[in-house]
Design a protein around this nucleic acid. Sequence first.
DNA 1: GCATCCTTTTAGGTTTGCCTAAATGATCGG
DNA 2: CCGATCATTTAGGCAAACCTAAAAGGATGC
Lengths: 142, 142
Amino acid sequence: MRKKTVEEYIETIDALERREGRAQTGMIAQEIAVRPPSVTEMLRKLEKGGLIEYKSYSGAILTPTGRRMACDLQKKHRIVASFLEMLGVDHDIAEADACQIEHHVSSETAERLRLFVEYLRNSPPGRGCTEHFERYCRERER
Amino acid sequence: MRKKTVEEYIETIDALERREGRAQTGMIAQEIAVRPPSVTEMLRKLEKGGLIEYKSYSGAILTPTGRRMACDLQKKHRIVASFLEMLGVDHDIAEADACQIEHHVSSETAERLRLFVEYLRNSPPGRGCTEHFERYCRERER
DNA sequence: GCATCCTTTTAGGTTTGCCTAAATGATCGG
DNA sequence: CCGATCATTTAGGCAAACCTAAAAGGATGC
C-alpha cells in the first residue's frame, strides 16, 4: 500500500484513543497495516513535531496541537463525505474519496462546502436543489 | 517541495507537448521544479509503465495510455475547479485545491460532480441553486 | 522473585524520488 | 569537419518510510 502520512497516523491515534482509550504501537500498526517498528519510528517523529507525547513502551497521546489536527481532518472528512452522498455518489465510494480528499482540501474550501451542505439540508423537502438535480439526472438519461 | 507523482509528470509532459510541441528533459525539470537527472530517471520508469515513449536524448512522447491519463486528470481538474468556483471559493484557492483533488477523486465521483456542475449551469438565471445559496450565505451572516 | 510470554524497540536493509558532480551526446558556427 | 557550448545522462549519495530478525522491556502466573 501507499506510504502513510503524518496526518494518517494522527487520525489513527485519535480514533484509537476514542475507541480503545489508548493508542499503543501495536494497535496503530494493525490499524494502518504497517509493522510495529515503522510505527515506533514515526511516533518519534510525531513527538518531535509536537503532535503527540510519547515515551518508549507507553503508547502515544495527542497533544492539543495533535488533537486539533485530528478534529480538523475529521470535520473535513464529514463535510466532503456528506456532500458526495447528497450528490448521489455511492456510500462506499463517497467514504473512500473523502478519506483522500480530506488531506487535500484547504480550510477555505472546506468551510464553503460546509455552508453549502448546510444550505442543501435546510432547503424545503421536495423543493431543494438536490431533488431538482435528481430529476435533472433522470431526465438526462433518456 | 513534495515528491512528484507519476501523474504529475504525465500532466506536465502533456502540457509541454501541447504548448511547446515537445517535452524534453530540461523543460520538464523546470516545469516541476526538479533537477534534470531526476527527470531522466522518472522518464525511464514512465516508459516501463507504458505511459510514454522515451529514447535517450530525445524527450518524451505520451503513448495513448499516457494521453488518456492526462486527459482524465485534466477533466477532473476542470470539473473540481469549476464546481469550487461556482460555490464561491476564491479562484486561486479553487485552482490550488483542484490540483490536489484531481489526483484523489474517483471517476464515479467526478462524473457525478460533472453532472452537478452541468445542472447548476443550466438552471435559469436568478432561479438557480447557486443564487439561492449566495442569498443563504448573505442572510446567515447577520 | 523469577521465568515466561507478549509487546516494543534496536539494528540493519530495501526502495523511491531527489540531489550534485562528472562524463557524454548533440548541435551549430566557422 | 571540428571544436565549443549546451543539454542530457551516468555515477554515487541522501532521506524517508517501510521491512525482517534479533534484543530488550514489562506484565503475569506460580
